[in-house]
Design a protein around this nucleic acid. Structure first.
Lengths: 189, 189
DNA sequence: GCTTTCACTCAACGAGCGTAGAGTGAAGCG
DNA sequence: CGCTTCACTCTACGCTCGTTGAGTGAAAGC
């Protein structure tokens, strides 16, 4: 169908190959996690020699970093004004279409030490941010519970793919979660 | 200190060795997950030849199954009467001292396909059980959210080891989570 | 058109893995 | 005491992995 080939220049071809590898890597890291996604598997799926992957990305660790870096870039608007509302909005985004690179991080966060460390930092930061605007006792704890509950739902939907979560509109999920989380954000325990 | 050695019989020695291997395996599978915990590593930590592990447990997959089987045996009282209360009590137990084998399952659930499948079954079953006693719309969805929020908190405490969760008494956590989850169990959305 | 560049492949390495079979030496038993 | 049993070790296999360095052939530059 698109067998028409506007003859690509060398540089164009190179960029397109690199991007293809990156896309495949993103998908496989997301599906399989760091350990089970292999350079050889990525290369085969990208229809390329494994050695080429190394030339472009130096090492598997570095390829993984490139893959998950795309995430960090797009995930932090950080205006932090109506922070809680924004947290919920963030959840909405994550539920609708999880940014693909995040999947790779999520998938590997329990088994890949570097990812675990990075994730813990991220969550610690979020906890501090959120708890700063929470009133009442145990603000940090409540923030942590809030964020981990988020995490659980996202994991259930995108990684475990539980049917009730898979098949429900994100808006409905947020609708249900909203009053639930209000009990953690409002100082009335 | 305990360098006293009541001379063990051959059968006793064998059982003790097997148990030692199993304990080490449980710990390493829990800390590292299925893939990164190796037979060789387990054998070394148990001060035993790798081949012996194979003789006793046939294969790595089977050793892992033995390890996580201990979990299933102890985790299901299943009287299911005041089911929700029991769910919270279960969370209390998980927060206090996670049954060690469960850690191995939790740790591997995102990257080890068999574990993922088993976990999904477990959660599906729990969702059905809980949703059966929930009134109102979207019972299954609400049950799923409940259970996944649980999961997130447990993961945050035992696997990510977030400080606020690590350092807080389980009772306090349940105290905070209880009203939060009530909004999901009571039909008032 | 000749040379240089460079995207890409080929072949191979060393390491670590799960696993198998033959061996060993002390405990158990007649 | 001698034979058997068996908990345990040794050695090695085949595989897959990440990674490397030498090649190749077509595009780019002069």
């Amino acid at each position: 169908m698109s067998t028409e080939e506007p003859p690509l220049s060398r540089a164009e071809r190179r960029r397109s190959t690199e991007k293809r590898i990156l896309n495949v890597a993103r998908q496989l890291f997301g599906e399989l996690g760091y350990d089970r996604a292999t350079i050889r598997g990525i290369a085969k799926a990208a229809q390329v020699d494994p050695a080429l992957v190394m030339q472009y990305f130096d090492s598997k660790e570095n390829l993984f970093r490139q893959v998950v870096r795309l995430d960090a870039a797009q995930s932090a608007p950080e205006t932090a004004d109506p922070l809680i509302a924004q947290l919920m909005a963030g959840l909405g985004v994550k539920l609708a279409g999880m940014p693909a690179p995040s999947l790779a991080m999520l998938r590997s966060m329990l088994t890949h030490p570097d990812t675990a460390a990075e994730m813990r930092e991220t969550f610690d930061r979020q906890i501090k941010q959120v708890s700063a605007v929470l009133e009442g006792d145990d603000a940090e704890l409540r923030a942590a519970l809030l964020i981990m509950a988020h995490l659980g739902v996202v994991v259930g939907k995108h990684l475990l793919e539980l049917e009730p979560l898979r098949d429900t509109r994100p808006e409905r999920i947020i609708e249900l979660l909203d009053p639930c989380f209000k009990t953690l954000t409002d100082p009335a325990s």
